[in-house]
Design a protein around this nucleic acid. Structure first.
Lengths: 168, 168
DNA sequence: GAAAGTTTGTTGTTGACGACAACAATTGTC
DNA sequence: GACAATTGTTGTCGTCAACAACAAACTTTC
């Protein structure tokens, strides 16, 4: 589907809600944000919510959320990593990664193999099923990325990636 | 995609950490992200986490979180708004706003005044205490914004704001 | 080589947050 | 007046970050 934001601005006739004591503006997006405009964090938060929702919807058929996708991607690119290494690389709590891996292992995408070098840790690998699945996820993720392009523009997206490259 | 990538048992991968010294704390920066680089959502998520943490820390003394700050700012700029209007403007669930306002009202920053025009709704106002407090919050938020500038650069921050202006 | 300290994976708790569902009171509509 | 819609509220559910505590395994130190 083409994620075309239906720009059908059904502009309602300006009704009024009188006598609120001090202010009356209550319609549509006439409400000012004041200091909020100019705060990078606010814009980034709203954008991140939008982008995650699109990701979740685009990968809805395969039931993969952004965090799960990031875990699978890192394991696929670096097989044999420990849970600690993956957690540190992705900035996830290792406690949280436990549940993520429980789920991914239950779905036969990931294996926890006891490391012989360090018997505390697990070497993480994709299963064969996990590899083919990840390939499909990557195609869908690329589709989601095209939605982002359509939303903010091709060169804006690339500028964004460049600006935020230090956080990956 | 890169669907090949031999995946043999505990075979040490060619590039990543040699020697397989599992216990050695390998640099997290050596671990490749593969497809994750190039995903706007991932970069944005990491950035947003950083920016929120800095905001929370910078406004730590006054114990104000980003969402609370956004609510106070909007009410301050548009006194008399209903809860529904604030929620819609900020993209917050009105159910969630209830708890936010409970907290802010308990701290004497916000008043819920029963609207006479529509006895279902409340007109939201800052208290006198809330106004002076918000002024302080804004100064701290500006300081936080300078941290962002220092992190990604002055013109990069402005480009970011421009790119994401549509989401505010 | 044993005691002490650290790391890894795990379990659990807490709190912020988004998404829903249901409800009473009130309003608008027909 | 009957009926639908809106507003604030309460509640549940699931995601997510942040800690705390623990056993097992490893490292350091004497």
């Amino acid at each position: 589907m083409t994620a075309n934001a239906a720009r059908a601005d059904t502009r309602p006739s300006p009704r009024k809600r009188a006598g609120n004591g001090a202010a009356r503006p209550n319609d549509a997006n006439e409400i000012g944000l004041d200091a909020l405009v100019g705060h990078a964090g606010y814009a980034v938060r709203r954008f991140q919510i939008w982008i995650f929702q699109d990701f979740i919807k685009t990968l809805g058929d395969v039931d993969i959320r952004p965090t799960q996708y990031s875990v699978l991607t890192v394991i696929g690119a670096n097989p044999g990593l420990s849970q600690m290494a993956v957690a540190k690389r992705l900035g996830i709590e290792r406690a949280r990664l436990v549940h993520l891996l429980d789920s991914l292992e239950q779905r036969k995408y990931v294996k926890r193999i006891k490391s012989k070098a360090d018997r505390r840790s697990h070497a993480l690998h994709l299963t064969a099923q996990g590899e083919t699945a990840l390939a499909k996820f990557k195609r869908l993720a690329a589709e989601h990325e095209r939605h982002v392009e359509a939303k903010i523009g091709k060169e804006n997206r690339e500028q964004l990636l460049q600006i935020l490259a230090g956080f990956t």
